[in-house]
């Protein structure tokens, strides 16, 4: 009896709470279909518009949104691919190989994962200006600073979870460390690799400060486009 009441109260809290979280998303979606006069005007607070329109979406297409989206997509993909590759190698070395200076390296990776891009944006800007790399896809290089340490960190945890026995039996069968890595560790840690790739992709896709400073030509990225609007 009491339990049922608690359950009901609990359900109400969750629904209310989700509404608050999701409300901005719903509101902006509804607004995007309203004509200009109803966005800023007496009827701005009506939930549904009587004269729903897709004119804003048409304006987006006219303003070359696809070009910006393409750039965002290319940069995010390039960064995701090379960061995942580089991070996998590094994480495997940290998780499974024995060599001098390993702990120091792990400490450096952990420490750098705490540095936000704010610290390095000035010097990177200088270097980019000197090399003439502004407004180019080279921006994916500095993006590895926000994504690489996190990717390494995630992959180390996943690689360490792969049972050691699998590796040992492979080495008894005569497989080299390299072969073990490619044939055993990578397939078994695939979910972890996907997780880190997704997190990398989202991180790059959403990054703002570097793309703001390293792209003096606006119109380059979808996110800058939004800022310009």
């Amino acid at each position: 009896m009491v339990n049922k009441k608690v359950e009901r109260l609990f359900a109400v809290i969750i629904v209310l709470y989700l509404l608050i979280i999701v409300f901005p998303f719903i509101w902006v979606a509804l607004t995007s279909f309203k004509p200009e006069s109803e966005i800023w005007g007496a009827s701005a607070l009506k939930v549904f518009s009587n004269n729903a329109t897709v004119e804003h979406y048409q304006a987006l297409i006219k303003a070359h949104i696809f070009n910006s989206l393409k750039n965002s997509l290319i940069i995010s993909s390039i960064t995701t691919i090379y960061v995942t590759f580089v991070a996998s190698c590094c994480a495997y070395a940290i998780a499974r190989l024995k060599f001098a200076g390993k702990n120091l390296l792990l400490a450096v990776v952990l420490a750098t994962s705490m540095f936000p891009q704010m610290i390095v944006v000035g010097p990177i800007y200088n270097v980019f200006v000197k090399l003439g790399w502004t407004n180019s896809y080279f921006i994916s290089l500095p993006y590895s600073m926000i994504t690489l340490p996190v990717a390494i960190f995630i992959l180390v945890t996943h690689f360490s979870k792969v049972p050691k026995e699998m590796e040992e039996s492979a080495s008894i069968d005569g497989a080299s460390k390299m072969k073990t890595f490619i044939k055993i560790i990578l397939p078994l840690a695939l979910p972890g690799i996907f997780t880190s790739a997704i997190i990398t992709f989202i991180g790059v896709w959403n990054e703002f400060l570097l793309s703001l400073t390293l792209n003096l030509l606006w119109l380059f990225y979808s996110k800058n486009k939004l800022y310009q609007a």
């Binding site: 580089v86 070395a93 750098t112």
Partner: peptide, 28 residues
């Protein structure tokens, strides 16, 4: 051989971290 492989594996990450984090930090 294991140590050498380890070194080769961490080299790309090391170069990236040195060039885009440590170098700008020192330059700052």
């Amino acid at each position: 051989a294991e140590a050498r492989l380890g070194f080769i594996f961490i080299l790309p990450s090391l170069i990236l971290i040195l060039s885009i984090i440590i170098y700008p930090l020192c330059y700052n």
